[in-house]
């Protein structure tokens, strides 16, 4: 049997059982990790398929959160608001992406960064709609047909909701990669000209991937809004986008394991740093400072030492140790037809 399948099954069962052992504070981290996995899965699609880096994924996360929060506060049933969040976010992404996606690599990175700053500025200005800089309070809890999570098991409920959504997102991505359009998209990342020459509708595919990645972020943002019941522009700093990028870079361009490993490792790291930074005797700004230092170093070191990320590196380590069954582990964008690691063109332009 395939190693990847069993690993996947073990991870699924393990993560399904894990909330039973966790306290509320730990469940919160569990939820955040799940939401990050969803966002990073979208980011990886964009990276691996369209060869593009987005520094504004936090913007789509924010748009999803504001959509869900604003709609739910205005009397739309919370579940409908949650489902509308990714749809509306994707719609915004299409409008933004239509012109911006015509730009290659480096420009897009700056354009998405500028986009996030604009989104934050708008969220801070339009007080009637967004609550301005003070934020949007009193977002109702998520309910289905009027039934919500019982108050004392609320975090528990959100943990499982996140689990389901994360699993769905990863399954969707997994199938997309193996599908016919998925192969077309891979051709796109290899060489845009070649893909266009062989009849792949490059522009449309790129836009669709951009919109899908935004929808993922929007969905995660929607859950975030309901879970915290309070959002403000300050909840979505540029550092959040950078954090998503760090997770993506650490995990690497692998479809399923990349986001999972990236998000889990970075959250563990963040917790460790928080613990160290808030030791007695540490200066007030120590936690933030440690975060900056470590994220910066991680980005630099990963790019210099493991530019394909940890998962492809692990995979080729396993492959060279001849422990791997033929066919390879979970299909990754970095894995060629025979399972041989092919350098992802996204990172070498």
């Amino acid at each position: 049997m395939r190693l990847g399948f069993w690993l996947g099954l073990a991870a699924a069962v393990g993560s399904l059982l894990l909330p039973l052992l966790l306290y509320d504070a730990e469940l919160t981290i569990y939820v955040f990790i799940g939401l990050s996995i969803i966002v990073v899965a979208g980011l990886n699609l964009l990276y691996g398929f369209a060869g593009q880096v987005s520094l504004g994924q936090g913007a789509f996360y924010a748009i999803g959160a504001y959509c869900a929060g604003i709609l739910a506060r205005r009397g739309i049933p919370p579940l409908a608001a949650l489902l509308l969040a990714p749809v509306l976010t994707a719609a915004v992404a299409v409008v933004v992406g239509l012109p911006v996606l015509r730009l290659r690599g480096h420009y897009l990175a700056f354009a998405t960064l500028a986009f996030q700053l604009i989104v934050l500025s708008i969220a801070g200005q339009f007080r009637e709609l967004t609550g301005g800089d003070t934020g949007l309070t009193g977002i109702p809890d998520l309910t289905v047909a009027g039934v919500g999570f019982p108050l004392e098991r609320r975090a528990f409920g959100y943990a499982y909701l996140t689990w389901v959504l994360t699993a769905l997102a990863l399954l969707l991505v997994h199938n997309l990669v193996a599908s016919r359009p998925g192969r077309g998209l891979r051709a796109l990342a290899t060489s845009e000209a070649a893909a266009r020459g062989s009849g792949v509708p490059v522009g449309r595919y790129k836009l669709q991937v951009f919109a899908l990645a935004a929808a993922f972020a929007g969905l995660a943002g929607g859950v975030y809004a309901f879970f915290l019941s309070y959002i403000a522009p300050g909840s979505f700093p540029i550092l959040l986008s950078i954090q998503f990028l760090v997770m993506s870079a650490v995990g690497g361009v692998a479809v399923v394991w990349g986001p999972v490993l990236g998000a889990v490792l970075i959250y563990i790291l963040a917790q460790v740093l928080q613990t160290i930074g808030s030791q007695p005797g540490m200066p007030l700004h120590a936690p933030a400072e440690l975060n900056y230092a470590v994220y910066g170093l991680v980005l630099i070191l990963i790019m210099l030492l493991l530019p394909e990320g940890i998962v492809p590196a692990l995979r080729s380590a396993v492959a060279s140790g001849r422990l791997r069954s033929p066919g390879g582990a979970a299909p990754g964008m970095a894995a060629g037809p025979g399972g041989a690691p092919v350098p992802p063109p996204a990172r070498r332009q």
Binding site: V53, L55, G105, H106, A109, L239, I242, L245, A249, Y292, A293, Y295, G296, L297, V298, L299, I300, M303, L304, P307, A346, R347, R348, Q349
Partner: peptide
């Protein structure tokens, strides 16, 4: 170049 860009971003954060 794309890796270099991400590195400069990392330097900025650092």
């Amino acid at each position: 170049p794309l890796a270099s860009l991400i590195i400069t971003l990392g330097v900025g954060v650092l």
